[in-house]
Design a binder for these strands. Structure first.
Lengths: 226, 226
DNA sequence: GCTACTGGATAGTGGCAGTATCTTGTTGTG
DNA sequence: CACAACAAGATACTGCCACTATCCAGTAGC
């Protein structure tokens, strides 16, 4: 199909498709002449994935390129999962403190906390894992905000996270084709994570409603401010 | 303290502090003269919260303003929690399809799925809740990507989310001051959510490593692509 | 041959987050 | 009192990003 039909099929403007081509998110069509190229179903699929990653996943173009590259490069099921997991932007950036001494102190404390957690749970993860680093940064920040987790609280969360991860992997099981699995992995990691967050908030909302109703207290303060 | 000292204490450039003042994120200092104002500890605290929300939470200035406004407006513990929960941007945006008919069909299917889930779990949430709407949008998108949850899978995730929410509320218990509680709620919702996501990915990483090691298969494909 | 459309390159737009500059006024030190 | 140093506030500028529009050949098909 021509680029205009690709645009019609996906709802993505022609100019944007060209932009994605330029940015290397979308492979070029098969050139049939100097001013004509043929696009196929795989391009439709890819465009949907791109839209899902950027709009639903909130990824930047650069991050999307990384993820798609990881998908294309993956050879095995585990490789695909790992590559995607590492390529997806981690939702925590580091944040440097004004005071270098305080900084180092918090870093050390948070690092110890992470190491202790990993040891307690017997999780295998190298210290170089971006997730480990990000977790350390996040705990350091919580410490600065005086909102640390108690170690057993953190462990409780981690055990729940483990169960969620088991569900995630079950969902990925049974897919052998690396590309399909990688795409599934992207969906699971980039889109299902927000879904879980929504479920968590809904559950919070429900719990709060129950407590308010049970206490017979004030009315419905769960009012949308916008 | 003067603005320069506030800057030194927090590590935020003076120009940025002025920017936050302009944007209404930070209350003005007590003016002592036409060209002098006095800032206090609450400004230091507020700046840290702003930095945490924008950098760690990844919120935009506008979203940060909404959240801070909700914090300031909250009168009760539940109100604070609800206001913050609704003010925090939901990590899923809607995404319209090219085909309106297909669109409506997916919407209906996803809506039914959400209603069924809420009924099955006996969760109380109004149809107007932004979380319900966002969940519907996300499920619709997953359906389009052919990666739907089976109903029992979704319910399994929801039950885990419920447990996480219980932990969250426990963490917020025992704080009576509405402002403190609202700030805690912000931290829990905006920063601890990424922490949980990190734990989930670490757990996935661990599980994958175990399976690869157990299967005696290929080497360590969990390689950082950047 | 003529029109519509294509791929490809280049330049422009709008929003956002921050930064720099400029003016006016104040302060505190010698 | 003079004067350098800084403060507050307003305005303008910068850089980045994700598109979007325009332009330019070069076919395709009637």
């Amino acid at each position: 199909m021509k680029i205009s039909e690709l645009s019609r099929r996906t709802g993505v403007p022609v100019a944007s498709i060209k932009y994605f081509l330029r940015q290397g998110l979308l492979p070029a069509g098969r050139a049939t002449a100097a001013t004509a190229a043929e696009y196929g179903e795989e391009h439709v699929q890819r465009l949907r994935l791109i839209k899902a990653l950027t709009t639903l996943g909130g990824l930047s173009i650069a991050a999307t390129r990384d993820v798609l590259g990881a998908v294309d490069r993956a050879h095995s099921a585990e490789g695909a999962l790992g590559a995607v997991s590492y390529a997806l932007p981690v939702p925590v950036a580091s944040l440097h403190d004004a005071d270098p001494a305080e900084e180092a102190e918090g870093e050390a404390a948070a690092g110890a906390e992470v190491a202790e957690l990993l040891a307690a749970l017997d999780w295998q993860a190298p210290g170089t894992s971006p997730h480990v680093k990000a977790l350390t940064a996040a705990l350091k920040e919580l410490r600065r905000l005086d909102a640390q987790y108690a170690p057993e609280e953190l462990a409780a969360y981690a055990r729940l996270a483990e169960q969620v991860a088991l569900l995630d992997l079950e969902r990925a099981a049974g897919i052998d084709d690396p590309v399909s699995l990688a795409e599934r992995a992207v969906v699971v990691l980039a889109i299902c994570a927000p879904v879980f967050e929504l479920l968590r908030r809904l559950a919070q909302e429900d719990q709060v409603r129950r407590r308010v109703a049970g206490g017979g207290g004030g009315g419905d303060e769960y009012a949308a401010p916008r």
